[in-house]
Design a binder for these strands. Structure first.
Lengths: 280, 280
DNA sequence: CGCTATCGATACCGGCCGGGTATCGCTGCC
DNA sequence: GGCAGCGATACCCGGCCGGTATCGATAGCG
């Protein structure tokens, strides 16, 4: 199976439309049809069912789509990592607006290490997992269970309970504490994008970063349940109320499991030291 | 980067010889040289340093070799899994001769499940990780910390302490218990292959499966430190003595982290049920 | 019920690229 | 210094990839 075939198949499987997929790939539609047919022939399985009006995935196609996107990400990652060997530097992916205090401590402590390399920050709107998988980042700060850690090596840094963030004018703003049942069905509960960038259907506002979320909350248009850490530096007019039965959120540092980089190992070690209780 | 380029590069990087690599790939040497040069040009990095007498890897080449073999394995896995979607069956990799009792219970219990599919057993000489990565197996039984679980999802099944296995005529055979310091430097300590099939240098006998190991031990040519489970059905003339400070060994069931197979999920659940304490 | 727009498949053609053979240039060795 | 081994280069050929033109099927519509 060639990379080209995989790229073409993934494009069609995502678009479910040969014309649009060909467009996205920058080629004409006939060679695309032919390549997919060849791939199916060689695998001996139908990947797509097509009528002249509709294209859909078979079970086998769904499997190949899942594995194929992972493989294409791994290839992109391999290229980037291979290219950047000679200029040692580290890209750390983190969520914009989140965990800033931990991040600052980590960067300071790592910079003081002997043999520290330059650390570039990749601030992501939401998910830090994708850049890790496709090689745009070497290490990522993420939050379980919100972010999936499948296929990554992970070191937990700290665990926090969660708070409801809401406008001080919200009816629930006076409560001393809340339970998930109090908030889970509220129509103003903000919705985050899924890893693929789409939103699950629902009533709440669609937000794609923390700044936007906080503005929405301040305007009384949204509420959210978030880890304790975002309380620091909360906007005027917002309040945080503990949600006692919300699942604990673990802030963790993650890296590709086959990473052999000295710099990554150092950064992870510093991260655990910085976040562990005790002096330092 | 195309799969073909990656295959070619990995062949050269492993052989460190263009002629042999071309031979292994079934092509002539000139197109191989040309393809590698193109790859280097496109990546903008030297992957190999060649004199007319010797080929060696650059740092960048070492990175690409590591990532490339993983990618090629993933591609092979994707093909196999895609092909076998329509004929649901499951391949379980296990070490030949190890954990047989657990294995039997697992297979029996799973077969009794509603919706169980056929389970094929892949009995490996040593490492069950590789067949999992390259798609020859869907699930594997492995032992931490002996086997690396990087990139896999793992469910621990049971944890055991370790025993020294030795001939009854061995000088240490009479001891009630041992410590690692008693055995670690013994010249007859058997050596297992690394994941790549090679052996680390050392004095001990090179063994590649349990049967062979036990024969060597019975002959007084070797000793080994192994999990408790191998005591059941120990050969005549062998004895097992607890090594009190040896690291605990965890038997675990592992599967590729992006697996979405119902059958795998069922098998893992049954495995945890079968191995958990209590009735059943 | 037929016209039409849409969409994937097919037919066919041209250029590029991947693979082959022949050969060169370099290097270590007897 | 002759020779053998090895990778690079030169050059040719055929197949495959991508393009245009067109077909066949189907859903929507009046």
């Amino acid at each position: 199976m060639e990379t080209r075939e995989l790229r073409y198949f993934v494009a069609v499987a995502e678009e479910l439309h040969f014309g649009r997929a060909a467009d996205r790939l920058g080629i004409a539609q006939p060679p695309l049809s032919r390549t997919i047919a060849q791939l199916e022939h060689r695998l001996g399985v139908a990947l797509l069912t097509r009528t002249s009006r509709k294209v859909s995935l078979t079970d086998a196609g769904a499997v190949l789509l899942a594995e194929g996107t992972a493989i294409l990400g791994a290839i992109a990652a391999a290229e980037r990592r291979t290219r950047s060997v000679d200029r040692p530097s580290l890209v750390l992916a983190a969520k914009a607006g989140g965990s800033n205090e931990l991040l600052a401590k980590l960067l300071d402590a790592y910079a003081a290490e002997p043999g520290a390399v330059a650390v570039d920050l990749l601030l992501c709107e939401a998910h830090t997992r994708q850049p890790l998988l496709d090689g745009r980042a070497d290490v990522a700060i993420l939050h379980e269970p919100y972010d999936s850690t499948a296929g990554l090596d992970v070191e937990a840094l700290r665990t926090e309970s969660q708070f409801a963030i809401l406008s001080t004018s919200h009816p629930l703003a006076g409560a001393a504490q809340l339970r998930m049942a109090d908030v889970i069905d509220l129509p103003e509960l903000a919705r985050w994008p899924e890893p693929d960038g789409t939103y699950l259907p629902g009533p709440g506002v669609e937000v794609h970063n923390l700044t936007q979320l906080f503005q929405m909350i301040a305007l009384g248009r949204a509420i959210a349940v978030m880890p304790e850490v975002v309380r620091t530096g909360l906007l005027e007019g917002l309040t945080a109320i503990p949600v006692v039965d919300a699942p604990k959120v673990t802030t963790a540092i993650a890296w590709p499991s086959h990473s052999r980089s000295r710099a990554v190992a150092d950064l992870v070690r510093v991260a655990t030291e910085v976040s562990s209780p005790g002096p330092g």
